[in-house]
């Protein structure tokens, strides 16, 4: 494997201005400003904190103060939500420049984005929208990831989506598509175990088959989140990737299987609405940490990338 293409390769030592906080083998949580006081009052260790990049793209003010405070003592993961990597149109250059400035300013331990699109022409839809898996879309996605990685000077982790519809025009499976992206661009992968479970339920495939086919050696981070239940047109279960509750038991089981196979990969508890008290979020992260600790040191397919 090309050293430059290593998943989420961190900046070189001489380029660093901020303290380095290792993220290997750790559980983390979404960083919400309403938790800041409780987090600061809490003892160490607290794991890593993940932020949505777009929330820190203002010029200044309290968001940057909060992130600077958190970044000083903890590893931070920068998670882009709106780059629209999965769309066919060119990336928005001003947005990529803002993203690059954040990477330079905060020197995050992990940097990730989504296999999805959110902008069409000039309209931003504020959702992670799905794409067909074809040779043409693969080429576009790879071009976009190359462009992002070139701009920020390091590899990103690309997250697998949760989806509710399929595209009959698709010519390859999601896992084949993702594997091809990782091969062509050298990017790492962010495996969202809840997304696997949601999509598997929604489209009637086996989550275990998906994982068996997923390039686990490229995984540099795992996401866990809660989902909600609805019904599809036939009255059957349709799961919604809602990030508004605790991680489901079935997803915990899936997670333990993943960790058993790829070792103690940094794991995020994602919680974005109906946000609970810090103690509840911390409790979910502690549950993930307990599983990580059980499998610590077992990762054999890849060296640790966090130091």
């Amino acid at each position: 494997m090309n050293a430059n293409a290593h998943p989420a390769a961190a900046p070189t030592a001489e380029a660093r201005r901020l303290p380095v906080h290792p993220v290997a083998g750790q559980a983390g949580t979404s960083f919400k400003h309403e938790h800041l006081a409780a987090i600061l009052a809490d003892g160490k260790p607290k794991g890593f904190f993940e932020v949505h990049a777009e929330n820190y793209m203002g010029a200044g003010g309290p968001p940057h103060r909060a992130l600077e405070t958190i970044r000083r003592d903890n590893p931070v993961s920068l998670h882009g939500v709106c780059m629209s990597i999965g769309g066919p149109q060119p990336l928005e250059k001003t947005h990529l420049a803002r993203f690059t400035r954040l990477v330079e300013r905060y020197e995050p331990a992990l940097v990730s984005e989504h296999l999805a699109w959110s902008t069409h022409e000039t309209t931003f839809f504020n959702d992670l929208l799905p794409l067909p898996y074809t040779e043409a879309s693969l080429t576009r996605v790879c071009d976009h990831i190359d462009e992002v990685q070139q701009a920020i000077g390091r590899a990103i982790l690309l997250e697998n989506p949760s989806t509710y519809v399929l595209f009959p025009e698709s010519t390859m499976s999601e896992t084949d598509f993702i594997r091809a992206i990782a091969r062509r661009t050298g990017c790492g992968l962010l495996l969202d175990a809840n997304n696997v479970f949601v999509s598997a339920t929604n489209h009637g495939f086996s989550a275990l088959d998906y994982l068996a086919d997923f390039p686990l050696a490229r995984v540099g981070e795992i996401h866990l989140a809660g989902h909600a239940e609805q019904e599809d047109d036939e009255g059957e279960l349709l799961l919604i990737d809602s990030h508004d509750g605790p991680v489901a038991d079935a997803v915990w089981k899936l997670y333990e299987i993943v960790i058993g196979r790829c070792g103690a990969v940094p794991t995020l508890i994602e919680w974005d609405s109906n946000i609970p008290e810090w103690a509840a979020l911390k409790g979910e992260a502690a549950a993930a940490q307990a599983i990580l600790d059980r499998y610590a040191g077992r990762r054999s397919s890849d060296e640790s990338h966090a130091a």
Binding site: Y164, L166, E169, N202, H203, G204, D232, D233
Partner: peptide
Amino acid sequence: DNVAGPRGKAAVKRY
């Protein structure tokens, strides 16, 4: 018209 559910299922509620 370019989206569908799995195995011939409808995509109205899904979309």
